[in-house]
Each structure stands twice: as C-alpha cells, then as structure tokens.
Design a protein around this nucleic acid. Sequence first.
DNA 1: ACCTGAACACCGTTCAAGT
DNA 2: ACCTGAACACCGTTCAAGT
Lengths: 194, 194
Amino acid sequence: MQPLRSLGQRAGLTHARVLAAARELLAESGFEALTMRSLALRLDVSPNALYSHVESKTALIDDVLDDVLSEVKTPESDVEDASAGLHAIMASTHEVLLAHADLVPLFLARQGARGPNAQELGEIVLTLLALEGVDGPRAREALRVLIVYTIGFTAFATQAPLMPMDQQQPSTGELAMNFDSGLRWLLNGIAAPN
Amino acid sequence: MQPLRSLGQRAGLTHARVLAAARELLAESGFEALTMRSLALRLDVSPNALYSHVESKTALIDDVLDDVLSEVKTPESDVEDASAGLHAIMASTHEVLLAHADLVPLFLARQGARGPNAQELGEIVLTLLALEGVDGPRAREALRVLIVYTIGFTAFATQAPLMPMDQQQPSTGELAMNFDSGLRWLLNGIAAPN
DNA sequence: ACCTGAACACCGTTCAAGT
DNA sequence: ACCTGAACACCGTTCAAGT
C-alpha cells in the first residue's frame, strides 16, 4: 500500500526518504533486490528521479551503511574498565551487524563504512585503547584488527556454511560464543605489554 | 594476440581453458571486468558457448577461488613446532591472497572457498592445532577465527583507505606487520590453557 | 556434444524535454 | 529544482537451430 498522493502533488522525494526506502527494501528482500528500479517502484517515481537525490547507487549504499552504525551502543564516557568497554562496543557492533545481515556483504565490498558514524565509533575505540595505555601506531594497529575481526566474523557467521568440514552448521549461540572467544584473545593480546 | 585457429577447426573449449582465461582476465583487469561476455570474447567464442563448460558464473568463480588456494605453501608434515607451522600457513595464505587482491572481494562474497584445496588447508590447520593440544569444538572455533581474520585482514589491507582516521595510508610493510601482530595475538589466545 | 544467432529479462545511468 | 519518457550501453542466461 503506497501512500496516496493527491492529484498534482509532487512525489516529494528527499534523500532521507530514499534512504529509508532502501533500508526497508534491504530488510525485506535482501541486497540483491536493491536495484535503482525496485527502489523507484517502491517510491512511486521513475528510476531516474532518484538521481536528483543520490549521486549514484554506490553513494546510496555508503549512506545506508553509515546509517545502520548509529544503532551501535557506545559505553558511557566515564567508563571505569576500558577493557570491558572495548568488549562491549565491539560486541554491540557485532550484534547490530548480525541484525542487518544483508548489509554485511556490502560492508565488506566497501571495506567498512567511512561516514560520520563510523568515524565516531573509531574515535571512541581509540579513546578506550588510550585508557588502557595503548596509543600511537599500536592503537591504530589494534583498531584495524578489531574492525577486521568483527566485520569478518559477522560475514562468515551469517548465511551459508563457512568451513568445508562443518558437518553440521554451528548454532547461533555457538557462533556468538565463538565470536567472544576470538575477541577476548585479541583484547588480551592488545592489552599485553609486548 | 589470440592463438590462430585453422578454418573449420573447433574452438576446443575446456573447463580448464575457461578457468585459465578467467584468471588472466581477473589478473589483468580486475573482477569487475570478468563478465561472461568479456570471457567469451577472449576465448573467441560466443557468450553462451561458455555454458557448455560451466554451470554458471557463480560456479566458475568458486572454481577460480579454490584454484588460487593451490598456491598456499603448507608446512612439512613432520613439523616440530606446531605454533610456527600455524603462523606459516596463515601467513602464506595471506601472501597468496595479497598477490591476488582482485579475488579477495569474491572470497568475502562467497564466504571463503569450499573446494578441495580449501578443505585440505582446513584439515592441515586442524592437524597442527591437535599437535598443540587443541581439538574438538575448540579447534573448530580456532579455525573459524583464523580464517575470518586472514581473509578479512587481506580484504581491508588491499585497496581503499580502511579507517576514517587514517590520515595517511599505512604502507604495505606496516600492514604486513599489523597482520602479524593480530595473528600472534590470536595464536597466543588459541594456545593458552583457557 | 558443442557451438551459433537471436532473444529475454533485466541492470545503472544519461539526456532532452516538460512543469 | 525536480520529475518524466526514452534511450544507451551493458548484464547473465535460455532457446531453437545447426554441425
């Protein structure tokens, strides 16, 4: 049921409406169903009308990716335990990505998001690392490893069998524990003196 | 320079020739240039002729992915230091993937390869883990983490800026050291008693 | 069995024209 | 400024026909 439009009224497209429609389409039908044409159909405009509000499909996808990161829960700034804070923020990122599994291949194809939300999350992680005494190039190393691990794990956890020798697919709960194991290994390594 | 064909002679396509041509095209022009039509042009046949030797483009890509894994150097089976062996096999995988950067997005999109070479590599890693006293579900956890980390890191290391706060792109050497750092953290965690 | 020409059912994007 | 119809330059894949 499309919202009705009175005669002569403009479609009233905005960047925000296009973005919202894209996220709905992704959530309902996956990222293969997200075409400029299907998006236009849903918004009741012709395909090329989208280009008044979006530079390209790639730019739209970048906006969608950054948008979803706004859902990540960040720890309070007066956190007492930096290590627990790091665990929490990465675990929340993992949860958000899992909840939007269809987006994960796009994160990978685009090598993560690079919009304002991604930037803010990165800075929070760097702050927590500094509280642990990790800074400079070593902090950037740690951040890179944490991002790679979190996005990568989500990608492999969602969809499809992931290892050839997986006779039976691990359950969602098992995968969540698996994610936590690796994350702890990494955080221990990062916090270790050398 | 296409190999000349005498009049009346058949193209003589085989699965192997299609696969080789696909890898050449990938190496020369990247994976966006790999279309069934460009592949057909290179092989001097019509596009639909490929379907006599390949089930679909996806199946072809799966074959390419597994094929490249044959280049990974595996440690001798009489390895004395299991931990060093694990480091070596993952580092070699990393190198092979880096050398075929164009394939990495495909590995991610397909969640790793699942052909015979991928299977063999997985089993070697499990054997090395067993030598370290890690087996059962914990070994499968470890394997999953190692695969995710290695493919994920390569994906983020190749191409594009990867973090918003990267003022200047890290050099290839820095990224290689970064990969090693994270890998050591993981291997330490995996080997730790608990 | 293997290849061809032609076509089907799509894509993202651009362009000229309307309001 | 924003939208439309039409078109451009592609895709992967299928089908009927030839050898």
